[in-house]
Design a protein around this nucleic acid. Sequence first.
DNA 1: TCAAGTCTGGATAGCGCTATCATAATCAAG
DNA 2: CTTGATTATGATAGCGCTATCCAGACTTGA
Lengths: 357, 357
Amino acid sequence: MPPETRTKSETTVDSASSRRSRASGRVTLSDVAQAAGVSPMTVSRALRGERRVAPALVDKVREVAASLGYVPDLAARALASQKSTQVLVLVPMLSNTLFVEVLEAVHKVLFSQGYHMLIGVTHYDPAEEEQLLRAYLPMRPAGLLLTGFDHSEESRKLLAANPVPRVHLMELREPGSGPDCYSVGFSQIAAGAEMTRHLLDKGYRRIAFCGAQLDARVMQRLEGYRQVLKQVGLYDQSLEILNPERSSLALGARQFETLLKAQTTVDAIFFCNDDIAQGALLEANRMGVKVPQQVAIAGFNDLPGSDQMVPPLTTIHTPRDEVGSTAAGMLLQLLAGDTVREASVDLGFRLVPRAST
Amino acid sequence: MPPETRTKSETTVDSASSRRSRASGRVTLSDVAQAAGVSPMTVSRALRGERRVAPALVDKVREVAASLGYVPDLAARALASQKSTQVLVLVPMLSNTLFVEVLEAVHKVLFSQGYHMLIGVTHYDPAEEEQLLRAYLPMRPAGLLLTGFDHSEESRKLLAANPVPRVHLMELREPGSGPDCYSVGFSQIAAGAEMTRHLLDKGYRRIAFCGAQLDARVMQRLEGYRQVLKQVGLYDQSLEILNPERSSLALGARQFETLLKAQTTVDAIFFCNDDIAQGALLEANRMGVKVPQQVAIAGFNDLPGSDQMVPPLTTIHTPRDEVGSTAAGMLLQLLAGDTVREASVDLGFRLVPRAST
DNA sequence: TCAAGTCTGGATAGCGCTATCATAATCAAG
DNA sequence: CTTGATTATGATAGCGCTATCCAGACTTGA
């Protein structure tokens, strides 16, 4: 009896029609199997390329699947195989180009390996992060990519209860954070210090720091700034302008104005992020303040556009692409069960001196 | 016999231990059910609030579930119920703040109703969109949110083969596009025309158009520009600078320079997007060209920062938030099976005249 | 030639959850 | 009090797919 005449799968059809139908009417693996005259298991294997299946069969199955318009059901696959293709990525904010670039890099690496990004935006709020974890963990993501180490106690518990390979982005691993703590980033403190040193080298003595958002990373840059200035005895707390608002051009403009109108003299300003620095540059333009002659301005992150400013903005270039692709690669290794050599990868940063200082 | 002593679920345990174990070791519904002394079905209902369950039981189940650290498995739920909580949203680009704002609005509405966004970035490439559809459709998203109507033939087939409620963003429904075609946006042509009219009203006569990316929406704005200028007999094809590159400040600067150095005279430039307009403004500053005295500059979309430019940029404000939340709301209605009154919602736009024109 | 290994395809049994039907319990109405 | 209607819970049977075990068919090597 040729295999085509076999009618094994009839039972399925029978039982389905004899009772209330829950079937979705979609083309399933069994449909493809029946049409191709093989078992569902063979179709599954042929389509996934798992194990060895006779090349002729593979072709036939592929063909039949295509002609039937078969679309595999990832939910079913995830349930049966106990592993999903989803990777949850939590970033603070998409309006900050920084993270968009990280996401692009992550996506590129992950997608090419058959994984999919689930993007969550925390708005720099640990509570929101927790809420997102609660919502997305039930999807049983295969891996996790989190920004920084600043999580709520509840989040930590959730993470502990759902042991999923996880890599932290943008910051470096905390010294004593256990063996399973992976991170890819650079030292925000060192970067903050480097910029401050650059300003000192340029001869500036009254160096202000403007911070927005005040997330962990901004505070670390501030820390670097403080360390350097204290070292040379030039630290002055009144030169720190910290505002928890979201960073924006408008905020930068306001902070610049505030500093210039204050009684204290300032000869350089280190902005925690390029966007507020850009805002300051524009405000300087409006106020007729000459940069860098009257006051120097520096930013952080080297966001798109900073090189276009008038004058071009001195900043710290941060390796977003590399952070994204390295972290994704690391996660892939963890998912594959490989051991990861460096649990904490320092990608460094680069001072980009331009005309604004 | 009190229900607590029943040992129904033992069979599960037995069969699992008697053969190879595929169990994941996670806490499942049955575990909660056993611990609470009720059936899995009751736990399922209690936790989801579906149907009526005795309040006392609900509390008990909730409590037990929490104490056990139970996390429902959405893949299993999706498989059993044949519906997922995922909504696939495809946008062209995240580095364009425009779409980030749309996504934020969509997320807010969808998340509050228990749905989750799957974000895909097409990079303005129909082929990439197709690839994303192919990758994400197997997740059986409950709904789809697509940008524009510019899809590949293959994509259309995929969409036809996977009938999922779908709303298109940013553009309005094509005239004869069937009954199941929903859209939320505004007329890009009308917006392009409006800006052109504004420039005419301001007395400009040699009005150039600078376009980047050249996606469908940009071409529609261009169309509006052409229509108006042809009407008054001022259309000049040599004043159109179209570049398929991604829009960026640098590109805007280049386009501005090109136009000013050309032999043709120009007294106003309509940029298809604020970012290139901003780049042009900065270039004008560098070149010492006075805006708007020597040449007026207008943008499109009213992106953050345009009001901060020197001079502030005249632009068209587009309703990103509303597009996002309205589209999400519409999709929710479709998902609930409600009939949607307006298949095509025109949210309009608003001319924002500022000092650059 | 035959035992031991290698391959390929199939049968079976769930993954964890919910739809659906069945049943016991409760209730309104006669 | 009955009796039919309405609950609340439970039992059962999959959703569509894959892990795992099996069983022939085919290789080998001696």
